[in-house]
Nucleic acid binder design. Sequence first.
DNA 1: GTCTATAAGATGATAGAC
DNA 2: GTCTATCATCTTATAGAC
Lengths: 213, 213
Amino acid sequence: MTSPVTSTTSTTSTTTATTATAEAALGTRDRLVRTASRLMQHGGYESTPVKQLVKEAGATLGSLYHFFPGGKQELAVAALDFGDREFAEVLAAGLDSRTDPAEAVEAVTVLLAEALRDSAWRDGCPVTATALESVGRLPDLQAACARAFANWQRLVEEKLLASGVAEEDARDLAATVINTLEGAEMSAQVTQSQTPLLVAGRHLSRLIGSYTG
Amino acid sequence: MTSPVTSTTSTTSTTTATTATAEAALGTRDRLVRTASRLMQHGGYESTPVKQLVKEAGATLGSLYHFFPGGKQELAVAALDFGDREFAEVLAAGLDSRTDPAEAVEAVTVLLAEALRDSAWRDGCPVTATALESVGRLPDLQAACARAFANWQRLVEEKLLASGVAEEDARDLAATVINTLEGAEMSAQVTQSQTPLLVAGRHLSRLIGSYTG
DNA sequence: GTCTATAAGATGATAGAC
DNA sequence: GTCTATCATCTTATAGAC
């Protein structure tokens, strides 16, 4: 939640500078996307009414449908893409903090566990809640979620490849790393405990270690 | 979805016999609970309107509020408890299919992958979607989800203990097994592929094997 | 680009007859 | 126990002034 991603398709921002840090200094479109990402991270898609969304973003309904003619769904896709990039930064930073991939993955779990506790167990994965709601009912959202998982998986895969893990092993391991992080984070949220994530970190480290020697 | 659990708190069933197999022969309360469980398994809590619920259950609003004065939330808790017991049966059957816990867990992933594909990727975990929606907003539902995870974890833990795994290792391993299954199943649903579950099965087997063998 | 008012329908829940 | 009619509220989305 502390590693913002500057807007990519900034069709607006005629006045506001990009130097600002506070959310209030962002363009309306960016505020909508970030707010949607945060609310969907907490409760998913259906639990997030557009009314609350625009209110917390400091925007209005008119602005929402100006920037997103496709309405709530189009905004949701942008929010999922934002969450995708945002988490990718956290993940990449965590992975870069150690040379050994086993240690790196365990470091990531520690980071996630701390962020989770510090947010009163609310700031979990930015896409998981929406992902489960979307399966078979909201194709655009489901596709955005699948993209995010694939991107995160690729980051882990590259880390493993850089350490000499065989291609097929690296791809499979990366999938299990991301999926285990997802499941452990959800469990940590529901039980309000860091333990599932920290335990998963130790097990993933052990598993990766059995491939890297 | 093929291993029903006969009602526990059957305050009703004055006429219908318990020999029936079809859902239509069940009491109204049971039909409501099972239908709610199925719909929440697919889309979670907020995505499941009571109107659709009673319709698919072949019941009416009057019956719903007769059996569940607490309304949708009270029914949701009963549905989560039902999903808890239902999945526990599948899990127990899978674990019992092999003596070695590593092989048993892998067998479970194969079962889950097949059930998922056969349901057009819809029949995932009966509580995960609701679990994520509930964190910090629906305490009763969150507690029911936490209970379910704890129950499933205990089944795996007992399997590991029976194979001589040390107590602490068994508890931790059981947590990671369940959490990895959760994450892999969600990933399988979103990407519409059995691979995440099957890969997770091989990795969990390898991880458990590093403790037992 | 922003804002308010409003439309058109869905939502959870209740009342009261049967 | 079941059913229908209905309520009050919330939902997404639009219209049109500024």
